[in-house]
Measured scan of single mutants.
Amino acid sequence: KELVSALYDYQEKSPREVTMKKGDILTLLNSTNKDWWKVEVNGRQGFVPAAYVKKL
Rank of each mutant, 00 (worst) to 15 (best):
V41T: 11
V18A: 05
V53R: 00
V41H: 14
N30Q: 10
K55P: 12
Y52K: 07
K13D: 06
K55W: 09
D9M: 04
V39H: 00
T27R: 12
K34P: 14
M20N: 01
Q11F: 14
E17P: 04
L26M: 14
V4S: 04
Q45V: 15
N42E: 10
K54F: 11
T32E: 14
N30W: 08
E17R: 05
V4H: 06
K1F: 14
G43P: 01
G46H: 02
K34C: 12
N30I: 09
W36I: 03
N33A: 09
L29S: 02
E12K: 15
A51S: 13
K1Q: 12
Q11G: 08
R16S: 13
L28N: 00
L28T: 01
F47E: 04
K55I: 14
D35C: 15
Y10C: 02
P15M: 09
E2D: 11
V41A: 11
F47S: 03
L3N: 06
R44N: 06
T32H: 11
D35T: 14
A51Y: 10
V48S: 01
S31L: 05
V39G: 00
E2F: 13
L56M: 11
L56C: 13
W37G: 00
A50E: 03
K22Y: 06
D24H: 04
W36K: 02
L29T: 04
Y8M: 12
K54M: 14
T19D: 03
T19R: 06
E12N: 08
L3Q: 11
K21G: 05
K13V: 09
M20W: 02
T27A: 09
Y52G: 07
L7N: 04
Y10E: 00
D24W: 11
V53E: 01
K38L: 15
G23H: 06
Q45N: 07
S14Q: 08
Y52A: 12
V41D: 03
L3E: 08
K55Q: 10
L26P: 01
S14N: 12
R16Y: 14
V4R: 05
S31K: 09
D9V: 02
D9S: 10
G46E: 01
L7P: 01
P15R: 10
G46W: 04
N42A: 10
K55T: 10
V48C: 03
E2T: 14
S14C: 11
R16M: 13
M20E: 00
Q45S: 12
K55F: 12
K22W: 04
L28A: 02
K54T: 14
G23P: 00
A51M: 12
L26F: 07
D24E: 11
S5H: 13
A6P: 02
G43Y: 04
S5Q: 15
L28S: 01
V48W: 01
K21R: 13
F47Y: 15
P15N: 11
D24V: 05
P49G: 02
P49W: 03
A51R: 14
N42T: 05
E12H: 09
Q45F: 08
K13A: 11
N33I: 06
E40C: 12
E40T: 06
L3T: 09
E2C: 15
V41K: 13
S31M: 11
K13F: 06
L56V: 12
N33W: 08
T27H: 10
E17C: 08
K34S: 13
N30H: 08
S14I: 05
V41M: 13
L26D: 00
T32F: 10
G23R: 03
Q11T: 14
Y8N: 08
V48E: 01
V41E: 03
I25E: 04
A50N: 02
R16T: 12
E17N: 06
L56H: 09
E17L: 06
V48L: 02
K22A: 13
N33Y: 09
V53G: 00
A6K: 01
E2L: 13
A51I: 11
V41W: 07
K54A: 13
V53K: 00
M20I: 15
K34F: 09
Y8Q: 12
E2M: 14
S31Q: 11
D35Q: 12
V48I: 09
L29N: 02
K38S: 08
Q45T: 14
N30G: 07
Y52F: 14
S14R: 09
E40V: 07
D24L: 05
L26T: 01
I25Y: 05
S31E: 14
Y10S: 01
E40W: 07
D35F: 15
L7Q: 07
V41G: 08
E40D: 09
W36F: 07
L28V: 08
K34T: 11
T32P: 04
A50S: 13
Q11C: 13
T32V: 11
Q11W: 13
R44M: 08
V41Q: 09
E2S: 12
L26W: 03
L29K: 04
W36C: 08
S14E: 09
L26C: 11
T27N: 08
T32M: 11
I25F: 06
V4W: 14
R44F: 06
V39K: 00
L3I: 10
E17D: 05
T27W: 14
Y52V: 06
K34E: 11
Y8P: 00
K38W: 15
T32D: 15
V48K: 01
L3D: 04
G43C: 07
V53H: 00
V39Q: 00
E17W: 04
Y10A: 00
K34G: 11
L7A: 06
V41C: 11
W37M: 04
K38I: 14
T32S: 14
F47D: 03
V18L: 15
E17K: 04
V18S: 02
S5N: 07
S31R: 09
A51F: 10
L56Q: 08
N42L: 08
D24Q: 14
M20G: 00
D24P: 00
Y10V: 01
K21M: 10
V53A: 03
R16N: 13
L3Y: 15
K1M: 13
Y52S: 12
I25R: 06
V41Y: 11
E17F: 07
D9L: 03
W37R: 01
I25G: 02
Q11R: 11
A51D: 10
T27C: 12
